Computed example of a mutant assay.
Amino acid sequence: MFDDWRVGFIRRPLSHVLDEAGLGADLIVWLPPRPRSFQFIADPFGVERDGLTTVFFEHFDYRVRRGEIHYAQYDGDRLVREGEALIEPFHLSYPSLIENDGELYMLPEGHKSGVLTLYRCERFPDRWAPVRRLLDVPAIDATVVQHDGLWWMFYALPGPDDRAMRELHVAWAPRLDGPWTPHAANPVRADFLSSRPGGTAFVHDGAVHLPVQECRPTYGAAVRLLRIDELTPDGFSAVEVRRFTPDGLLTGYSDGLHTLSDDDRLTFIDVKGLRRSPAEGGVRTLYKMRRLLGLNGPRRPVAPLAA
């Protein structure tokens, strides 16, 4: 059995999902499925710029098993362009976007590199350069927000017994580029139902709200929205205020929903369908052969980390 994800967006801000109606299936524009079998797109983040909606997402091919960051651009609800945004020798996903001091940044998950790296957009949407290591730990699904004069980061860490799915960690900094200090109470939350970040953190009615993934009974089963009532370098408390499931959103994709992100005007989501195929064994064999032959590496040079 394997995961098959689809990405969509709604022309409403993320705070809209706090309304009673929440996510409305009739409002969602779905990106087309991948042209090849055993490929999917997930972890959408996006921005409106120059009259176009640009959606960044993880593109994953089971034949290679290394995520890349691709993009799709929409003029209204019409797809006009697709392409590659960022490729590294290691797996990339969760292309969280940050606008700060007139610059656009991306903070993708690349925990196989062993660090958390911030990228700056040099040419929109397809040229991104690494500018700074924010953490010297393999942070997963790092999500940042500015609140009460500080920058806050929420993230997971890899480890045994599915640690990445059951612990929420926090760090804080005076500026986006750091220095970042881990929270005194890490992990601030520990359970499989509401710990791993799952989209854009935002401020609503004076409180930070954080989408988190529900990772039982399956990875990315649903999204729960936490309202963080205490957020200081020494204190943390949060309560769940909403739960979002994939039910009724897209036929054949009712097994998971694990991203809610926005850019103040649009909301981006993904949904999952669990699949079985007689070709699964062949795809796994192909991946192993490609790995043995060294064919699963990046398809273009990687820019060095800027000083």
Rank of each mutant, 00 (worst) to 15 (best):
109 E>I: 03
91 H>P: 00
107 L>E: 13
102 G>F: 01
108 P>F: 06
96 S>Q: 05
96 S>H: 03
94 Y>W: 11
100 N>W: 14
89 P>A: 03
93 S>L: 02
109 E>M: 06
107 L>H: 10
115 V>Q: 03
118 L>Q: 08
100 N>A: 10
107 L>N: 12
94 Y>N: 05
106 M>T: 07
105 Y>F: 14
107 L>F: 13
109 E>R: 06
99 E>V: 13
95 P>V: 02
93 S>Y: 08
90 F>G: 04
90 F>P: 02
98 I>T: 02
110 G>D: 10
99 E>W: 01
106 M>I: 09
91 H>Q: 03
107 L>K: 03
92 L>Q: 02
92 L>R: 00
91 H>V: 04
97 L>W: 02
108 P>D: 04
97 L>R: 05
89 P>C: 02
88 E>W: 12
107 L>T: 11
94 Y>E: 05
116 L>E: 06
95 P>T: 01
101 D>K: 07
111 H>P: 07
100 N>Q: 13
106 M>C: 09
97 L>G: 11
114 G>C: 05
106 M>P: 03
118 L>D: 07
119 Y>R: 15
101 D>T: 08
119 Y>G: 14
114 G>I: 00
88 E>R: 14
114 G>R: 04
115 V>C: 00
104 L>W: 01
105 Y>K: 10
111 H>M: 15
96 S>T: 08
89 P>Q: 04
89 P>L: 01
111 H>A: 15
113 S>A: 10
100 N>K: 11
117 T>I: 04
99 E>P: 14
111 H>R: 15
94 Y>K: 03
101 D>Y: 14
92 L>G: 05
118 L>A: 10
119 Y>P: 06
110 G>K: 14
112 K>W: 14
112 K>D: 11
106 M>Y: 03
97 L>E: 08
112 K>V: 11
88 E>Q: 12
112 K>I: 11
97 L>A: 09
92 L>W: 09
97 L>K: 05
115 V>K: 10
105 Y>I: 12
87 I>S: 13
106 M>Q: 06
118 L>H: 06
100 N>V: 10
102 G>R: 04
87 I>W: 03
97 L>Q: 07
97 L>D: 09
109 E>H: 08
119 Y>M: 15
111 H>T: 14
92 L>T: 01
119 Y>D: 15
99 E>I: 09
116 L>P: 06
109 E>F: 11
93 S>E: 00
105 Y>D: 09
103 E>S: 15
115 V>M: 02
93 S>M: 03
